[in-house]
Every structure is written in structure tokens, then in C-alpha cells.
Computed example of a mutant assay.
Amino acid sequence: MPRNAPPPYRGGCLCGAVRYVATVPTLGARICHCATCRGAMAAPYLAQAQFPRRAVRWEGTTARWRSSERLFRHFCPRCGTRLFLEPRDAPRLGIPLATLDDPNAIQPEMHVWISEALPWGLGPDDLPRYPQGSPLPYRIAAT
């Protein structure tokens, strides 16, 4: 299991209009290679950590877009930075690790949706790899 820095985790958008803090340890961190995440992030994958929704506060205004039946993606309307992933079926938020003030504070634990990965987007790490979504407990609703 990777060693993460202790909370709180602070971060924000590129222009500084939105700042956030997550006050508890992550529920899990993963690298998603699905086509939806790649397209939404304009990147070969999305490295993100999940937190209980109640443990994340932010200042500033976000806009959101529904990228799938179950997921909203929040972004800064001023600079466009993608900030949060909000599932409709669970009280949690995903936070892209690249938006943390210290992007090394949380280490990914696995790769998911590698069935949709770009061949050159998979690094030479030894993290577990799953052809589709995360295994349990990552699909369990946060309480």
C-alpha cells in the first residue's frame, strides 16, 4: 500500500479562483484509462483520489457538466481546470491528483479501465491493473 501524506490535502485550479481542502484520508486513489476520462481531461489518463463528499470544502464557484449517466464533472468556469468528479450514486468526490498543491501527497493504488488504455499511456509501474472499473471497496458508497 502506498504511503500518503496525512490530511489535509489542499489544492485548486490554475487561476486560483477555486481552492479546496479535503480533511480526511482518501477512500482510494487510482489511475483511470477509460475513454470518457481521457476525453474529459484531454490527457492519456486521469489520476484521482476519492473522498467522502462531507470531507471536501471549496471556495469559489465551479460549473459542472454531466459526462455520463452517473457522473458530473466540476471545473473552474474561469480557467477550465477540471477539479471534481461527483458520482450521482454515492456521497463522494474524486479529485484529480494534479490539482493538489502537492501532487505527490497521494499515491495511486491501481490502474482501472486498462481495456481502453492507450498503449503508450501505461507506465512501467507495478500497480495492479484491472480491465474495467475498480474492484470493491472502491465502488462502495462513502458514508
Results as ranks from 00 to 15, higher is better:
M1R: 09
R3D: 01
R3C: 06
N4R: 05
N4V: 03
P7E: 09
G11Y: 01
C13G: 02
C13E: 00
C15P: 02
C15S: 08
A17C: 05
R19L: 07
A22V: 02
A22Q: 01
T23H: 09
P25M: 13
P25L: 14
T26G: 01
L27T: 00
G28M: 08
R30V: 11
I31M: 14
I31Y: 00
C32F: 07
C34N: 02
C34K: 13
A35S: 10
C37R: 00
A40W: 06
M41C: 07
M41V: 03
M41P: 02
A42G: 11
A42H: 04
A43M: 04
P44M: 13
P44Q: 11
P44F: 08
L46D: 06
L46I: 00
Q48K: 10
A49D: 01
Q50A: 15
F51R: 11
P52C: 14
R53P: 06
R54S: 10
A55V: 07
A55S: 14
E59A: 15
E59G: 11
T62F: 04
A63D: 06
A63I: 03
R64V: 03
W65V: 09
R66T: 09
R66A: 11
S67K: 14
F72T: 04
R73L: 14
R73E: 10
H74Y: 14
C76D: 01
P77R: 07
P77M: 15
G80L: 14
T81V: 09
R82H: 04
L83D: 00
E86L: 05
E86Q: 14
P87I: 10
P87F: 10
P87N: 15
R88P: 02
A90P: 01
P91L: 14
G94W: 00
G94I: 04
T99G: 09
T99A: 12
D101W: 06
D101S: 08
D102L: 11
N104F: 06
N104L: 09
A105N: 04
A105E: 01
I106K: 02
I106A: 01
P108I: 02
P108M: 07
M110I: 06
H111C: 12
V112D: 00
V112S: 03
I114L: 12
I114V: 12
I114R: 05
S115W: 01
A117T: 00
A117I: 02
L118E: 07
P119E: 15
G121F: 03
L122T: 03
D125K: 11
D125Q: 13
L127N: 05
L127W: 04
R129Q: 10
R129E: 11
Y130K: 09
S134P: 04
P135L: 06
L136I: 02
P137F: 07
Y138S: 11
I140G: 08
A141S: 13
A141Y: 05
A142W: 03
T143I: 10
T143F: 10
